[in-house]
């Protein structure tokens, strides 16, 4: 659905995005993580045909984002929730949405139906005639979400949709994104919120001008940390360590009363390890699988890159 090959954007002497290559499948939720200034917004703008790329290639549904006539076709089938809501404060929520629905050539009937459905879903129907300028941040964000959906696009770009929202409003927005995921929409999500990425995304890319890593949250964790088994013992003796080392080719580290063992497949290796320790006279208090959080992965990736 979304393809980038060596996608690059330079602003004069600043390289904002360098050589991005990735692919997002139809119906997939793809999360883009990265520190401030990593180039997330710039990437989304290039993909939405808002700014021109400097080099490389990017396609949406097979259409070239850098080609004028393709660009119109792309903009028909995508919805964008930009970093800033960009609503018309003087106009009512309904008028804001109606304006956009018209630009997508919706008939009057279609406009009425989709605007009412979205405003009801987002709990704003009662406020439909109030000027958006009087709304709270959370309400504005919901109107911006509705605006991105008035034409029922198959592909959505969300640039930090829950930034600046209180936890309750953020959850509403997240639940709404999960609903969209169920509707099989392709979603490209920029976020700083790792928990959000973990909850919503099928795959994640970590960006810092370059695309540092890409994969499912599990793949990323494994690639960076591998899998580890932690075994707590009453006492650790040399004999026990030797027995474990005989049993596995992975690294074994002793930390106080614990053994931290690198394993390839915990499910297959753990029973044998436990047996070996027991046979060597070890008294096991607990066996744990060590799993890093997405935050560990993110921080490690971003810090390792200057």
């Amino acid at each position: 659905m979304i393809d980038a090959v060596n996608l690059t954007k330079k602003f004069k002497d600043i390289t904002a995005v360098d050589g991005l290559t990735f692919h997002v499948d139809e119906g997939e939720v793809f999360g883009f993580l990265g520190p401030n200034g990593a180039g997330k917004t710039t990437t989304v703008r290039m993909l939405c045909c808002l700014i021109a790329r400097t080099s490389g290639e990017s396609r949406i549904a097979g259409y070239d984002t850098g080609n004028d006539s393709d660009s119109l076709k792309i903009r028909k089938i995508i919805g964008l929730i930009p970093e800033n809501v960009g609503l018309y404060g003087e106009l009512s929520a309904y008028r804001n949405l109606d304006f956009y629905a018209r630009l997508y050539d919706r008939t009057e009937q279609q406009r009425k139906e989709s605007i009412e459905r979205l405003l009801r879903l987002l709990g704003l129907w009662e406020k439909k005639d109030h000027p958006v300028g009087t709304f709270s941040k959370g309400m504005k964000q919901k109107v911006a979400i509705a605006r991105a959906l008035v034409h029922d696009p198959g592909i959505l770009f969300l640039d930090e949709p829950t930034a600046n929202l209180d936890p309750g409003a953020a959850k509403t927005v997240r639940d709404f994104i999960l609903e969209l995921k169920k509707e099989k929409k392709t979603i490209f999500l920029n976020t700083h919120n790792l928990e959000e990425a973990q909850k919503l995304c099928d795959r994640i890319g970590i960006l810092k001008t370059h695309l540092l890593r890409i994969g499912t949250p599990e793949e990323l964790k494994e690639a960076l940390w591998g899998s580890k088994t932690v075994i707590g013992l009453e006492e650790v003796s040399d004999m026990i360590v030797a027995a474990v080392k005989q049993h596995t080719s992975g690294k074994v580290v002793v930390e106080d009363h614990r053994l931290v063992i690198d394993v390839k497949n915990a499910g297959q290796e753990n029973p044998g390890l436990v047996q070996a320790i027991v046979a060597a006279g070890g008294r096991i208090q607990f066996v744990q699988e060590f799993s890093p959080t997405l935050e560990d992965v993110y921080l490690k990736t971003v810090r390792e890159t200057p």
């Binding site: 703008r45 939405c48 045909c49 808002l50 119109l72 076709k73 903009r75 028909k76 995508i78 964008l80 930009p82 800033n84 809501v85 960009g86 609503l87 018309y88 404060g89 956009y100 630009l103 997508y104 911006a144 605006r147 991105a148």
Partner: peptide, 14 residues
């Protein structure tokens, strides 16, 4: 000031 040009430019309008 409203930063509304970005969503407007994202519509199929030249």
């Amino acid at each position: 000031q409203e930063q509304s040009l970005e969503p407007l430019l994202a519509t199929p309008t030249t």
